[in-house]
């Protein structure tokens, strides 16, 4: 990891540029963008509400990850995961039905699982499919699209198709471990000892009860480490999202809604910038009902949970940069093609 400060400066600059590009693109006059007291309050409410809403899920994520670290052996994980790629892909796509988590909680868990021997492609499809293909999101989507049942169904079909396709692509083409190498800046001796140490506990298990007590006592410590690890990206994502929502006016979108491709691309960018939780994005999408064609809304509903600003930043904390980039482009391409196909085949 290079200097954290440089990276932070980098992000801030990127965010600034992104906002400027949006401004220029929509040609809004700058006088309306002054940050008065009303805007500051709106910004505060949005910024903190995203953090507050994500906190419980992040905490569940880091706690489950910490419990996995302390209590589940690598052997058990390997025994439980399917060996055949078809079974593996299906397992990853549908895991959300039994483990319904949102993406903030998922990333630390998946990192832990991959370190413990879960094939990386399964972990990655879970990150992509899990936030959509789960019972809570089913409920929310149908509530929001009561009058548009095909759109609600299409969301799940398309999410499933995309994640299955992604799974096979990753299975055949992903050669390297997508995880960042474990912390080079760390004094090497501690890192080296970590895994053998964990194995010692599992295999030799001194006195069993003291082992459990110690491992339970370790859980909040692991959780705190992961919280500070992931939390910084959550805060950055929330900050940019809140700024965009406060400053960029929705009426400036109308121009792009008319063209097929631009409406899709726009909805993707919009979903990416908003970084909404998948349980609530359906309600936001339904408020666009009159402005955008249903296929573009489908793109929004499938792309947003799979990839957004908040979770890209969190992924960058865990996965290699190049991998995140390729993975993101692949998702964008698959969702776009899928959504346009669904539209032309008349499924929506």
């Amino acid at each position: 990891m290079s200097n954290l400060f440089i990276r932070l400066a980098n992000w801030t600059a990127t965010a600034g540029c992104a906002i400027l590009v949006v401004l220029v693109f929509f040609g809004r006059d700058m006088s309306r963008w002054n940050f008065d007291a009303a805007k500051m309050q709106t910004f505060k409410i949005l910024f903190l509400s995203i953090i507050l809403e994500a906190l419980p899920f992040l905490l569940i994520g880091v706690l489950v990850s910490a419990l996995l670290q302390s209590f589940v052996s690598d052997k058990l994980i390997r025994k439980l995961t399917p060996k055949h790629p078809v079974a593996g892909v299906l397992f990853g796509s549908l895991l959300g039905i039994i483990l319904p988590l949102c993406e903030c909680g998922m990333i630390p868990i998946v990192r832990r699982l991959i370190r413990k021997g879960l094939p990386a492609y399964i972990g990655m499809i879970y990150i992509v499919a899990g936030p959509i293909i789960n019972p809570i999101v089913f409920g929310a989507t149908f509530a929001a699209f009561r009058t548009h049942k095909e759109l609600a169904y299409s969301r799940f079909y398309l999410a499933f198709c995309v994640s299955v396709a992604l799974g096979f692509i990753l299975y055949f083409f992903m050669k390297k471990d997508p995880l960042k190498p474990e912390r080079q800046e760390k004094p090497p001796h501690e890192h080296e000892h970590h895994h053998p140490h964990a194995h010692d506990h599992v295999h030799h298990g001194h006195s069993r009860s003291s082992g459990i007590v110690k491992r339970l006592a370790d859980t909040p410590a692991h959780a705190a480490e992961e919280f500070f690890d992931m939390g910084k990206y959550l805060i950055l994502g929330s900050l940019i999202t809140a700024l965009l929502q406060t400053l960029v006016s929705r009426s400036s979108f109308a121009a792009v809604a008319d063209h097929e491709l631009s409406s899709h691309l726009f909805m993707m960018g919009f979903a990416y910038a908003l970084s909404l939780c998948s349980t609530s994005d359906a309600f936001v999408a339904s408020s666009f009902n009159n402005m955008f064609p249903p296929a573009a809304l489908l793109t929004f509903l499938v792309f947003g949970p799979m990839l957004d600003l908040k979770n890209t930043l969190m992924m960058l904390a865990v996965f290699r940069k190049k991998f995140v980039l390729k993975f993101s482009l692949l998702i964008a391409l698959l969702v776009l093609t899928g959504s346009i196909l669904f539209d032309h085949m008349g499924i929506i």
Binding site: A38, I45, T246, S249, N289
Partner: peptide, 19 residues
């Protein structure tokens, strides 16, 4: 703390003819 009001409503756009 303030309430969300017209400022954000303008940014988000009010739909007068829903669904």
């Amino acid at each position: 703390d303030g309430l969300l009001g017209s400022d954000l409503a303008t940014a988000k756009g009010v739909q007068f003819a829903p669904q």
